[in-house]
Amino acid sequence: MHDREAARRWLADQGVREVRGGWVRDEAPDVLLTADQVAHGWAADVFAEDVDAADQVRLAFGLLDLLDEYWVTCEIRFADDSPEGPLPAGVLWDGYRRRLEADRDVEAVCYSLWVDWFEDRATSATAFAEVLGNDIDRVVTEPSDALLRRARRVLECSGPVPWTVKEPAYRTAARLPALHPAVFLGLRASYHDLYGDLDPPAALSLLDRLDLPPDTRHLAPLRHVLAAGHRNHHRSPGAWDDAVRAGS
C-alpha cells in the first residue's frame, strides 16, 4: 500500500491524477486517459528519477499496483536490461514475490514472468529460482496462504522454464497435495506453450505421482502424449488431437 500511494503522489507531481473513470493531466483535464495510456506515458520516467535504483524499483512496483498494467513490468525489464542496469536484484525479486503472494488478481505480474523472464533463456533460471526455486522447500514444509498463492501462480506459468531448472521444484511441490493441481497445470503448460520444455519420461513419472481426480480435464491426453515420448505440442502438432480422440 505504501508503494501504491508513493506512486500516486509521484504521478501527481507529474501532473497526472486519478478521477472517476480514469486519469487526467492537469494541462488537459477534459481528456480522460486509461491506465494503459498512463503506463505507456509515464512508467519509463520512473527510471529517470534522481533517486537510487532501489527506490526507482519500489516506485515502479507502486505504479504497477496503482495501474495494474503489464506495460509497467515491461519498463522494469527494460531498465534491468539497460546500460544502467541491472536493477538491484534483492529489491526487484522481492517486488515480484510480494505481489505473487498478494490476495488479489496479479495477472500482469504472472504474464510478465511468463513471456518476459521465463521465455528468455538468459533470465529464466534466475527468475524461476528467485520467485520459487529457492523457496520451494519452505513452501512445502511451512505452507501459508501467501506462500501457496505464490507457488501456484509460478508453477502455472512456468512452462517455458528449462526442464532441468524447474524439475527439482516440481518434484518438491509434488510432496504437498495442495500443490498437485498447480504442478499438473505446470506440466500441461510445459507441453503446450510455444517455448514449453519438459522431458517426457520424467514428466510422466511426476504426473503419475499427483493425486488428481481421474476426470481432470486434459489429464488423460497429457499422460498419453508423454507416454508416447512427445516433448512439445508444437513439435508434434497432431499428437494431442490423437490423444484426445484415443480417450473419447
Rank of each mutant, 00 (worst) to 15 (best):
A108Y: 00
A7W: 13
R20D: 11
A239N: 14
L147P: 02
V165R: 07
A243Y: 15
V154I: 03
A12K: 11
L132Y: 07
A228N: 06
W23G: 02
D208E: 14
V139G: 07
L194N: 00
V72Q: 00
R231S: 02
P200K: 08
P86H: 06
H233A: 02
Y170H: 13
A43M: 01
Y170L: 15
Q56I: 00
P29E: 14
D50H: 10
D80W: 01
R217P: 05
E69F: 09
R77V: 08
H180D: 12
D120C: 12
R223W: 04
A174S: 15
H224D: 14
P201L: 01
L187W: 03
A173T: 10
M1T: 14
V109T: 08
D68H: 09
A239F: 09
L64A: 14
S205A: 13
V109C: 07
V165P: 05
L132C: 10
E156A: 06
V165Q: 08
E142L: 13
R25V: 11
Y70F: 15
Y170C: 08
R8K: 13
D193K: 01
V91L: 09
R97S: 07
L148W: 11
L87P: 05
W71E: 00
E167G: 08
H180L: 11
R175E: 15
H230C: 05
L194M: 09
A227F: 08
L187Y: 01
I76E: 00
E156D: 06
D197C: 04
T141G: 05
V72K: 00
R25M: 14
D65N: 01
R150Q: 13
G41P: 06
H180G: 13
D116C: 08
S112M: 00
S236R: 09
G22V: 05
A239Q: 13
R8L: 14
A246S: 14
Y191E: 06
S124A: 15
H224Y: 11
V115T: 12
A246V: 04
L194P: 00
W163I: 11
